[in-house]
């Protein structure tokens, strides 16, 4: 269990190398998950952005599958926690036990001491247990009985959960949700993908045959590459504008945190790198706004009554927010012609 310091992650990789390594992981996962390329890439991007992933969807759409496939594709330490109502915090973080032989307390690490931690059905555990993840997810360390233990790099929690309306779930507290970089939904596979799934998975589970195509060292290199991706000032401004818009949106009771801004930009770097660019585009931020921001915000009671989902609210914000222009002010504030042909149809009060 060697501790890897952040300085050891490398700089920019040659494009080909980065591409080969990342594509290999994606392709590997896709052997198991049919027709979900975008979701798979996003999951990988979260890994490369040093974030944590929350997969939320109805049961039986391959959440667990995705988490496990990602874990298997990388040759590193993987632990899986099945969250149940009777799970204890110590099961997650570890516990000091009295060793009869040495007559001393000895730390027995919990499930989080691994590179990839798959937390299945995370909202079935009690909030107390869920909260055990708070420290380790943000600070990458565990403190038990006053002693702090560092976690490894890479470290990623991939949690799955059912939507909160489902029976027997404890909703994740805001603080906990905020620690997840992105929340993605699997969605049903389309007809073709489902057919392919039937053909390929009918008899055996391809997951068992899945071989790792990468290792922790390679992932560290990829992470180092992602960190070098260029972010122009205008893009930073756009990220700030986006989160500010969530804080000022009339439909929202709670906007996105500064942590969200950070993680948004990091994930955008990873996405850009996966697309073979060495600079971030506002397009990246636009694509990531819903997965990265939507699970952190809380709509007002009115908006909830109107059944406006946070996803829809964030999507609308993105749709409305003008791009910052680092150059001279552009005259295209209002739509020329102005006969309501734009996306903003006149709204009556």
């Amino acid at each position: 269990m060697t501790q890897q310091t952040w300085d050891e992650v490398g700089g920019l990789l040659p494009h080909d190398e980065f591409r080969a390594a990342s594509e290999a992981i994606v392709a590997n996962i896709e052997q198991v998950i049919e027709g979900k390329t975008a979701t798979v890439r996003l999951a990988l991007a979260v890994l490369l952005a040093e974030g944590h992933l929350l997969i939320e969807d109805v049961p039986g759409v391959g959440k667990t599958k995705l988490a496990k496939a990602l874990a298997r594709s990388i040759d590193c330490s993987v632990r899986r926690i099945q969250f149940t109502p009777d799970l204890l915090p110590s099961d997650v973080t570890g516990v000091s036990v009295y060793n009869q032989e040495t007559h001393d307390f000895e730390f027995r690490p919990g499930a989080v001491f691994a590179n990839l931690v798959v937390g299945d059905e995370i909202n079935r555990a009690s909030p107390k247990t869920q909260s055990a993840l708070l420290e380790c997810m943000e600070e990458r360390q565990v403190t038990v009985d006053g002693v702090t233990y560092q976690l490894q790099t890479p470290f990623m929690v991939i949690a799955t959960q059912n939507p909160i309306e489902m029976e027997g779930t404890y909703p994740l507290p805001e603080a906990q949700r905020d620690r997840f970089t992105a929340r993605i939904a699997m969605g049903y596979p389309d007809a073709g993908a489902e057919l392919a799934m039937l053909d390929g998975h009918g008899a055996t589970d391809p997951l068992t045959e899945l071989r790792p195509v990468s290792d922790a060292a390679t992932v560290r290199q990829l992470i180092g590459h992602v960190r070098q991706v260029h972010v122009a000032d205008a893009v930073k401004q756009y990220a700030i504008d986006l989160v500010t818009a969530t804080r000022e949106a009339p439909d929202l009771r709670l906007g996105a945190s500064p942590r969200a801004t950070l993680q948004l930009l990091r994930t955008a770097r990873a996405v850009a790198a996966l697309e073979g660019r060495d600079y971030v585009l506002p397009d990246d931020l636009q694509a990531l706004a819903v997965p990265v921001l939507a699970h952190r915000i809380i709509p007002t009671a009115d908006a909830q009554l109107a059944r406006r989902t946070t996803d829809a609210i964030v999507a609308e914000l993105v749709h409305r927010l003008p791009l910052p222009n680092d150059r001279k002010r552009s005259p295209y504030d209002t739509r020329p012609g102005g006969t309501g042909r734009g996306p903003y149809e006149p709204r009556r009060p």
């Binding site: 295209y332 020329p336 042909r341």
Partner: peptide, 19 residues
Amino acid sequence: LDTLVDFQVRVDRTETPRA
């Protein structure tokens, strides 16, 4: 952009150049 305006094609400030 000016050409677009001249030919009555919508110009959207929320759009990136790529979009």
